[in-house]
């Protein structure tokens, strides 16, 4: 039954914190097999939206479905299909990389032998094997991103939800991650990730949504959203940015 459903569908998701409306009704359908980029300025509500979509934050209204399974009504089925890399959340970082992967794998009910084999492969490919038994607390920021990605990939999910996967990652590793994600989508998986790096989104994505002030402002395939301009122009136009010129901050250049 899962095939006629979108990989992820959000309907009317909304969340307010005290007086601040962080997400004001987001509808989104992420088709199976797509590579979906969620763009938006700082504080747009990307993290909040994705957290609600994967079951980390209870929405005030609306529903989220993963391949047809409601994340909040049938969390077990939905979560087994999901791989998530949240942002601003600590890993169980008093474990070494290998221990962390083993932990995630077993939590997902995988066979220990398979966990061993995949963990070794992932550590190797992501160039984390050299870290050996260093605890994840002592990893660099980029290494933490990479081990987080490995944890999300380990159980072979159908849908990957990644919050800012390219933040703090060096160019070589970024290329590596792009490769991995491409192969994953090529093999029938679906990826949705948030980012503010336009080049990455333009290079990778088949679909884009631009979120600002808790609402979807533009959505569609990359070509539809971009038209004949660059994605950055569209983004700036939608978000209504300002550029600092003239007299303000003049003390910076004394």
């Amino acid at each position: 039954m899962t095939d006629q459903h979108p990989a992820l569908s959000l309907r009317g998701l909304a969340k307010r914190f005290d007086t601040k409306v962080a997400v004001a009704g987001v509808d989104l359908a992420v088709p199976t097999g797509s590579f979906y980029g969620l763009l938006g300025p700082n504080g747009a509500g990307k993290t909040t939206t994705l957290s609600m979509a994967v079951g980390l934050l209870r929405p005030d209204a609306g529903e989220a479905r993963v391949l047809g399974y409601d994340v909040w009504a049938d969390p077990v089925r939905a979560k087994s299909l999901l791989g998530v890399m949240p942002d601003g959340v600590r890993l169980f970082d008093r474990l070494s990389g290998a221990e962390l992967l083993a932990y995630h794998g077993l939590l997902r009910g995988m066979d220990p032998a398979v966990v061993d084999q995949r963990a070794a492969e992932l550590l190797d490919v992501l160039a984390l094997a050299d870290a050996g038994r260093t605890l994840v607390v002592d990893y660099s920021a980029g290494m933490k991103k990479k081990i987080g990605l490995a944890c999300a990939l380990l159980h072979g999910p159908r849908l990957l939800v990644l919050d800012e996967p390219f933040e703090a990652v060096d160019p070589v590793s970024a290329a590596l991650i792009r490769d991995i994600l491409h192969r994953y989508v090529g093999g029938g998986g679906t990826v949705i990730f948030s980012s503010h790096v336009m080049e990455v989104v333009e290079r990778l994505c088949s679909h884009v949504a631009i979120l600002a002030e808790g609402r979807i402002k533009r959505v569609g395939t990359l070509a539809e959203v971009r038209g004949d301009r660059s994605l950055e122009d569209v983004f700036v136009e939608v978000v209504g940015g300002r550029t600092a010129t003239g007299e303000e901050l003049s003390w910076l250049s004394r």
Partner: peptide, 9 residues
């Protein structure tokens, strides 16, 4: 870090 257990359900 408890989020990891939540994500895994």
């Amino acid at each position: 870090s408890y989020a990891a257990n939540l994500i895994a359900g």
